[in-house]
Nucleic acid binder design. Structure first.
Lengths: 335, 335
DNA sequence: GTTAGCACTGTGCCCGCCCGAGTGCCAGGA
DNA sequence: TCCTGGCACTCGGGCGGGCACAGTGCTAAC
């Protein structure tokens, strides 16, 4: 597929279909784009494009719409990522600079991206690679229950309640706390579970069961990092996209609520030279997303941010927005 | 309105309409319910109910559907809250008992409620009334930025980055940390901002700006409690409800994403003697929710949990599920 | 107060019709 | 070899008429 005019026609079809949301015919094409040839010629090229499986006609006598493969070709070969406007860039920066804590950053980011792209935005919590333990706090809740708080250097505090066989004296609690701190502060999160197992094993009997329970709790906090969580916004945008054409909203919403599935999908996507990954239609495994497209990219060490929308989306703008937001996010979190 | 048979007929209309999702006529009514009278009599009663504004006919020759007021009467006068089944109760308990931390409790609760009711579920984070400060941690991020972590007795850890005019020495940081701890540990969250203002004012010049910045950050954390946050699940259920009848999905999704609005709505709702609050259609202010119903109740000190769905919902079951989930939630968090 | 019967009415559905958009193909020209 | 104008063809969508049906309101009788 290296016939320049045909690529140009494919591009025009994709753009017009995204814009007008209806099949585009040869005449409309020559009217709206300076192709320099007649509609008959365009028809011949369209037949060739259809032969190659890049476009298709919903019914015999109507215009053409791009296929999955057509969008893919468009994205790979044609689309130049469109830079964001100055005001947009400033808006991103201002909004994210004001964020109070990590949760706030995530919340603002996902809303911003949803608004910029007019799609559903998804942001994974930052990955904890290279993060070490800053502090651990053990809080007595009474009745043999203690709250364990893990404060890693990335600020993503985690917490959990551990249940002990018997209540602890204040002095015992302090000793336990000191032992835990000594064992893990400064260590990488990945090393925490083992370190605590050693600590528990080396603790004298009266405190041993409590040390084991607390150690297990902290270990779980360190292991089950926040990178398994995500935030989402802009689901209302789906309603608009879905309104006029296929892509029923229910299954897509279900898929989006399955965080595990979404996170795996995002993590599988590998970005290309432009720094963005795109999955179109059936490139997503068979299922509810087979009529949708996902545009994603990484930020920070190995976390992901992206949007989900109809295949008929403005890829250049969307890719630009996703990439820009990811960059600001890296900057905010890395700084 | 104290005509027993007419109430019975209203009840039958609501139940059948909820069940079959189409206007119900006099004949179908006598077929499906043992009313003991003929369809002609039912027609007379239906005319009376329509006169009172409790039901209405979409067009001249079709069955009747309940109005907002009809649902209201149904909910107030008729519906007995239907207790949950044993397996349902056990499922709630098992699921919530396994939760790791507060975020996990919220996440599990909201999913559970969405699944039980087949509606969109909303859970507000627990309110911090009566909560005191257990600990504060100050973590140096370098470059004059410090992470401030507030650990309240309810386990809802909050965090924030404070930006200082100039970097601090380690010893200065330790001193600052000690001053903050001395000022706020053991105090109620509501007293924290003032206490820190005093602390900052009484700090010697070299450390004063940093104390002010950190104090302000901690104060904001204490003031801006988690009760302003909420989690949501089951939006896919909206697609099903919305599919066949009015209640367009877009505006409702938009309203749900406006957390501020939703939280205010929930907080305004006052539960009745049965411990549940219900808002139907236009009882919600004009707007996107005027064709929806909200069923909510409180849990813990003053937080809310509820569901949003079409007016045509199974109120007895929904009210029971909301109430049951709220009870388990109170128990988990209060224990 | 209840019931049977009857005339009436609006909706949904099916059918046939026509119109227009857009195609594929062919023959002629650069 | 590629492009173009022309033409016949095809299908979808909109429109109007006719039909069956569900359900009502009303009246007269019990």
């Amino acid at each position: 597929m290296n016939h320049p005019r045909r690529l140009q026609i494919l591009q025009a079809i994709v753009e017009d279909y995204v814009h007008f949301r209806e099949p585009v015919g040869s005449k409309a094409l020559v009217d709206r784009h300076r192709l320099g040839v007649s509609s008959a010629t365009v028809r011949n090229d369209m037949a060739a494009l259809e032969e190659e499986g890049l476009i298709t006609a919903p019914h015999t006598s109507s215009g053409r719409i791009p296929t999955d493969k057509g969008y893919r070709t468009f994205v790979d070969q044609i689309a130049a990522v469109k830079p964001l406007s100055g005001p947009e860039r400033r808006a991103i920066q201002r909004l994210l600079d004001d964020a109070a804590d990590i949760d706030d950053v995530m919340e603002r980011t996902v809303r911003l991206l949803a608004q910029l792209t007019q799609q559903v935005a998804v942001v994974q919590y930052p990955h904890a690679s290279g993060v070490t333990v800053r502090h651990v706090e053990v809080v007595d809740l009474g009745a043999g229950r203690v709250l364990v708080v893990l404060i890693p250097t990335n600020g993503r505090v985690a917490q959990r309640v551990a249940v002990l066989r018997a209540p602890l004296e204040d002095s015992q609690l302090l000793e336990l706390r000191a032992r835990v701190l000594a064992a893990v502060v400064g260590r990488s999160l990945t090393a925490v579970p083992d370190a605590l197992a050693v600590m528990a094993a080396g603790t004298a009997p009266p405190l041993q069961p409590a040390a084991a329970a607390v150690g297990e709790a902290v270990g779980a906090l360190a292991a089950g990092g926040a990178e398994h969580r995500m935030v989402m916004a802009g689901t209302a945008n789906l309603a608009r996209s879905t309104g006029d054409f296929h892509l029923s909203i229910g299954p897509v919403l279900e898929a989006l609520e399955e965080q595990v599935v979404m996170l795996r999908l995002l993590s599988e996507m590998e970005q290309d030279a432009r720094g963005v990954a795109v999955r179109i239609g059936t490139e997503n495994a068979e299922g509810p997303l087979s009529e949708a497209a996902v545009v994603a990219t990484g930020y920070g060490p190995q976390s992901k941010v992206g949007v989900v929308g109809p295949m008929r989306m403005d890829y250049p703008s969307t890719m630009a927005a996703v990439r820009a937001v990811a960059r600001y996010l890296s900057r905010i979190l890395g700084g």
